Computed example of a mutant assay.
Amino acid sequence: MLTLVSRRLRNSLVLLMLATLLCFTLVVSAPGNIAVLIAELRTPKATFADIHKIELELGLDQPIVTRYSHWLTGALQGNLGISYKTGEDIGPALSSRLPITATLVAGGATFAMLFSFVLGFAGALWPGRFADVATRTIALLGASMPSFFVGALLIYGLAVQLRLLPTFGSEGLSSWILPWITIGLLPAAVLSRVVRVGLEEAMSRPFALTAVAKGLTRRTILVRHALPNIAPTYINALGAQTGAMVVGAVVVEPLFALKGVADLFLSGVLFRDFMVVQACLLVFISFFVVLNLLVDIGMMFTDPKLRRQGS
């Protein structure tokens, strides 16, 4: 088990290094000269000498390998550079915004887990009945509506018309309810189908038929025997949907005026602030790599086949 975990950790580190290289290359290869943009922001009538001075300050005249080495070394030390737009350090800005994005994604993932289990388990408990049809309909609608549309409906219905919840800000639990539902509804719909199909498949296996022959109720069989069997599949799907929530945060954060990492990333793209874009991409890449590592470890703990393969 430890050997398998260490192997996954080593692979994750290699993947992270390759991802940082790709991230840096994509940003650096963007069209246009960033020195010209900064010079125009500082001085409306910038000369070639001003542009050349900025290139020397930013190290844009150095080879790309040297620039990547300096950027990666600084990033490992917590120095993510200076924003071209504001002239401030990016590290403190990211550290203040990370808790907001983390709270958004964690809350959305929690809502997705709870709601998906309720829908999937209800459908598996009463197959073919009204509850099964209703949960399938809810899952279909949830998977068909994009996050910005769900957020707009929630804001109009619960905030504007009924005035039950605030529409923006991050103060208090009530301000997080609408963003959590918005970002977690689509993943919950997808995960509910994973639960429903997985439980139905597990109920058709010999161990479930044996439990039925012993007189156990369907509810008992689902809880004791079927749910543990779908755990590896569910963890894998949950990891994929949690990663998708990070992408969804790019839409949800501006919608509810949440000043998180995704909002900072959009601002960097809008103003071509490449240092901010690089820093945000590095955070996103690190999150995806760590998330995949945790998913792999979780699947090892819940799937005996993977543990036997590792040993």
Rank of each mutant, 00 (worst) to 15 (best):
146 P>E: 05
292 N>I: 13
203 M>G: 00
41 L>W: 03
297 I>A: 01
76 L>K: 03
139 A>H: 09
19 A>E: 03
1 M>H: 03
235 I>A: 09
193 R>N: 14
98 L>G: 02
185 L>W: 07
104 L>Y: 07
69 S>W: 11
55 E>Q: 10
292 N>P: 01
190 V>D: 02
214 K>A: 14
170 S>D: 04
294 L>N: 09
240 A>I: 02
130 F>N: 14
35 A>M: 15
111 F>V: 13
16 L>V: 13
68 Y>M: 15
143 A>N: 15
233 T>S: 15
264 L>V: 00
176 W>A: 06
289 V>M: 12
126 W>Y: 11
264 L>E: 01
241 Q>M: 14
116 S>R: 00
247 V>A: 11
102 A>D: 07
49 A>N: 04
207 F>N: 02
216 L>P: 01
132 D>P: 01
127 P>Q: 04
262 A>N: 02
85 K>N: 10
148 F>G: 11
51 I>P: 08
81 G>V: 11
300 M>S: 09
157 G>F: 12
103 T>V: 04
57 E>T: 12
306 L>R: 03
303 D>E: 10
241 Q>C: 15
302 T>N: 12
206 P>E: 02
73 T>F: 14
276 V>H: 09
244 A>G: 15
258 L>C: 01
168 F>C: 02
8 R>Y: 12
58 L>P: 09
137 T>V: 14
182 T>H: 01
211 A>W: 05
180 W>N: 06
250 V>N: 00
257 A>I: 06
213 A>R: 09
221 I>Q: 01
148 F>T: 13
103 T>Q: 15
155 I>T: 01
107 G>Y: 14
225 H>R: 03
186 L>M: 15
211 A>K: 07
163 R>F: 01
274 F>K: 00
4 L>H: 06
49 A>P: 08
204 S>F: 14
28 V>N: 00
88 E>K: 15
249 A>Q: 07
220 T>I: 15
243 G>I: 14
173 L>R: 09
235 I>P: 13
5 V>R: 07
220 T>G: 08
289 V>T: 11
51 I>E: 01
36 V>S: 08
226 A>N: 09
260 G>A: 07
215 G>D: 03
213 A>S: 06
55 E>A: 13
297 I>S: 08
23 C>E: 09
175 S>D: 00
222 L>V: 00
251 V>R: 10
155 I>R: 05
164 L>A: 06
285 I>E: 11
265 F>T: 15
181 I>Y: 04
53 K>R: 06
130 F>Y: 12
221 I>R: 05
270 L>A: 13
276 V>G: 05
277 V>Y: 04
20 T>Y: 15
168 F>G: 04
242 T>E: 00
166 P>R: 13
73 T>M: 03
103 T>W: 09
156 Y>D: 05
153 L>N: 04
247 V>T: 09
219 R>G: 08
136 R>W: 04
171 E>R: 08
106 A>H: 00
311 S>E: 06
78 G>N: 05
26 L>N: 07
304 P>F: 10
51 I>W: 02
133 V>I: 14
225 H>C: 02
3 T>W: 00
173 L>C: 08
107 G>D: 11
